[in-house]
Design a protein around this nucleic acid. Structure first.
Length: 659
RNA sequence: GGCGGGAUAGCUCAGUUGGCUAGAGCACACGGUUCAUACCCGUGGUGUCAAGGGUUCAAAUCCCUUUCCCGCUACCA
């Protein structure tokens, strides 16, 4: 036997800003089902997951909570790990970006890239356009101005480090074109190509000085390594990668040499850009091979709108598990999630699925099979070889199932793979109807036929249960225990008849999945929602403060340069073909200015009219979506991007100075 | 605005390079059955395959136009 083929799979590392909801948990379960299946196929699997723990958001959150950032992430990371464990995810490695070896290695990676010139120290001065949040090389500037908006670029406030994405862009384009399987689903490939790669990559700013909670650049005090450089590196630091070329061994094993490159990075579709552009370029710069495949999976959404804490309708895995059990929750998220469209979850849907598929089709099948075996055969079904033509159809379907499942899993069609497994159970139910064992049981002369029928059923269920292992490992065990059967290898499933003839099944069949009443479930959900809201109200008072990054101090002269006045909106219309813009005619004194603002999502054109607002009047005019804008309406913005116009507290005439 | 994807049964979706009466699951209704968790099996759709036009012996499938949805991206003075 040759050496086992390796399979290295990673999930994205979960951000430790709070408890993960069912949508986040889905990814870990999906990953788990894939690696469990790979193990079944005989691969030497490495499954890594973990938590991403740095960044300004966490610095702020921990401050609000009144604890150190480290204490904060220790708690949340622990919580995430608990949920992953609860869901029975069989990871080999749970990495934390605050792990010492990781931090040290990220510093070394940063330093190596700096020393070889792929990361360079740059300046914002004359090159960084703050409103565009874009960095430009001198050659990209048009008359020294931002090529996008044509305005002056920001003078230098601070130094920063940049990663030369442009240097590797052509190589990456080439790689993507020659490896169609690299980005999955393939539709995502176009988005990356058309939006980023083909227009030309801008170098990426990879350091920050505005906060402290991160990995410091060890050769330049005050600079913190960009969280994505930090986070993405986990895929190699978790294997003991060392820039020196000598991997750090784990139990004497060089995991990095063995497992890298990753076979699959499983991530949410929202972070595809980081994984298909920045990460491959980092690897190229490090001289390492690229991962074989990156799959940006869709999301699990709630059908009554987005999950939000304040609504109290967030669904958490542990709440679902309390009602339905671990395997039912695993089944639901895996089954309900299509390959490239978002899936939907609700208490009603999961109840329906559990009842229909798990309680009825599967649970009842196992139960009725064992009951009949006990009732008619004292628990022992022997293969007496009394076959009929209907048997062939059953056998053909069952023995063909493993290859069908393998094909679906190879294509990452996990939901379809599960359906293939369930086709076995459905066929079994039909087989019972066709063979009518309760009639055979009444006729002593049909006893051998009856025994054969039940043997065929038990054998089929054994195959089905064994195939279910990747998706619902506990259920597999439960079924096999009740049948007193051995788990089958994929190879053994291809031949019918592995169940040892004459084995005695349990005489006390246990219900695998209880049928749930939708009303009961909803009542329980109500309780959970109520408790969430209580918790959140306390959270809300804590979260009613927003901390933002401080800007450098300005002088009174700087302030005096800006002219603010009260303006009255006398007309307003939507800017056609723009998603966010409204165009207002604003009366300021006797003058009327046209001002374009990105507030369409929050105000209709009609309700804008008549409002008195605060206006920055002497801002240099600019064109937005081709429309001239001669000033700026001041708005307050919350942490979710919600906007509110700032208006005078008492009525003031249009044109009144604001000072 | 740019690029891409989608619109198929009440709901969620399949429909391979255009080819036989357009399918599955769920829900619903009826029938059968009783071993079983009121379960299982069977039967039931006149669906303008978004609309209009074109190519073809043949179009849900290819082309054009229109409408509406979604994703990424830009705009947010």
């Amino acid at each position: 036997m040759t050496e086992k083929k390796k399979f290295y799979l990673t999930t994205a590392i979960a951000y430790t800003s709070g408890k993960p909801h069912i949508g986040n948990t889905y990814e870990a379960v999906l990953a788990d089902s894939i690696v469990r299946f790979k193990r079944q196929q005989g691969y030497d699997v490495r499954f890594q997951t973990g938590t991403d723990e740095h960044g300004q958001k966490i610095e702020i959150k921990s401050k609000e909570a009144g604890v150190t950032p480290k204490k904060f992430v220790d708690d949340v990371s622990g919580q995430i790990k608990n949920i992953w464990d609860l869901m029975n995810t069989s990871y080999d490695k749970f990495i934390r970006t605050t792990d010492e070896y990781h931090e040290r290695q990220v510093q070394k990676i940063f330093k190596k890239l700096y020393e070889q010139g792929d990361i360079y120290k740059g300046f914002y001065e004359g090159m960084y356009c703050t409103p565009c949040e874009a960095f430009f090389t001198p050659s990209q500037l048009v008359d020294g101005k931002c090529p996008d908006c044509g305005r002056e670029c920001q003078p230098a406030k601070e130094e920063a480090y940049f990663l030369k994405l442009s240097k590797y862009a052509d190589k990456l384009i080439e790689h993507i074109n020659t490896h169609p399987e690299f980005i999955q689903p393939e539709s995502r490939k176009n988005e990356m190509m058309n939006n980023f790669l083909l227009p030309g990559l801008q170098d990426l700013c990879v350091s920050r000085t505005s906060f402290k909670w991160g990995i410091p650049v060890d050769f330049d005090e005050g600079h913190i390594i960009y969280v994505w450089i930090d986070a993405l590196s986990n895929y190699i630091t978790g294997l003991g990668y060392d820039t020196d070329g000598n991997s750090i061994l784990e139990n004497g094993q060089d995991l990095f040499s063995k497992y890298w490159p990753a076979d699959l990075h499983l991530i949410g579709k929202d972070i595809l850009r980081f994984h298909t552009i920045y990460w491959p370029i980092m690897l190229m710069a490090l001289g390492l091979p690229l991962p074989k495949q990156i799959f940006g999976h869709p999301w699990l959404l709630q059908n009554d709108g987005k999950m939000s804490k304040s609504k109290g309708n967030v669904i958490y895995a542990d709440d679902l598990v309390k009602i339905f059990g671990v395997d039912a929750v695993r089944y639901f998220v895996l089954h309900e999630m299509p390959f490239d469209n978002d899936g939907v979850i609700s208490w009603e849907l999961i109840t329906e699925r559990v009842n229909s598929d798990l309680a009825n089709t599967l649970g009842n099948l196992v139960n009725r099979t064992i009951s009949m075996t006990n009732k008619y055969l004292f628990g022992i079904a022997e293969d007496k070889g009394v076959t009929e033509s209907v048997d062939e159809e059953l056998k053909a379907l069952v023995t063909a199932a493993p290859d069908k499942v393998i094909a679906k899993m190879d294509a990452l069609r996990v939901a379809d793979a599960i359906s293939e497994v369930f086709s076995i159970f459905k066929r079994c139910n039909k087989y019972i109807d066709e063979t009518e064992p309760w009639i055979l049981g009444k006729d002593e002369s049909k006893k051998d036929r009856l025994s054969t029928v039940l043997y065929n059923l038990i054998e089929s269920i054994t195959t089905g249960a064994s195939l279910l292992e990747a998706f619902m490992p506990e259920t597999t065990e439960k079924i096999l225990t009740q049948l007193n059967a051995q788990k089958k290898s994929l190879e053994d499933m291809r031949t019918f008849g592995g169940y040892i003839s004459g084995t005695k099944v349990t005489d006390k069949p246990e219900i695998l999945f209880m049928r749930q009443d939708v009303k009961d479930v909803l009542a329980k959900a109500e309780e959970i929602i109520a408790s969430q809201i209580t918790v959140d109200n306390t959270d809300d008072t804590k979260e009613s403060v927003i901390n933002i990054e401080s800007k450098p101090e300005i002088t009174f002269e700087d302030f005096e340069k800006m002219q603010f006045q009260v303006g009255e909106i006398i007309a307003c219309e939507e800017v056609k073909k723009s998603r966010k813009l409204l165009c207002s005619q604003v009366k300021i004194g006797s003058e009327v200015k046209q001002i374009v603002s990105g507030i369409k999502q929050y105000y209709t054109a009609e309700e804008m009219v008549g409002k008195k607002v605060m206006v920055l009047v002497n801002l240099k005019p600019a064109k937005l979506a081709g429309v001239l804008s001669e000033g700026m309406l001041l708005c307050a913005e919350d942490d979710k991007g919600g906007l509110a116009l700032v208006t005078p507290e008492k009525d003031m005439p249009a044109g009144a100075i604001i000072c």
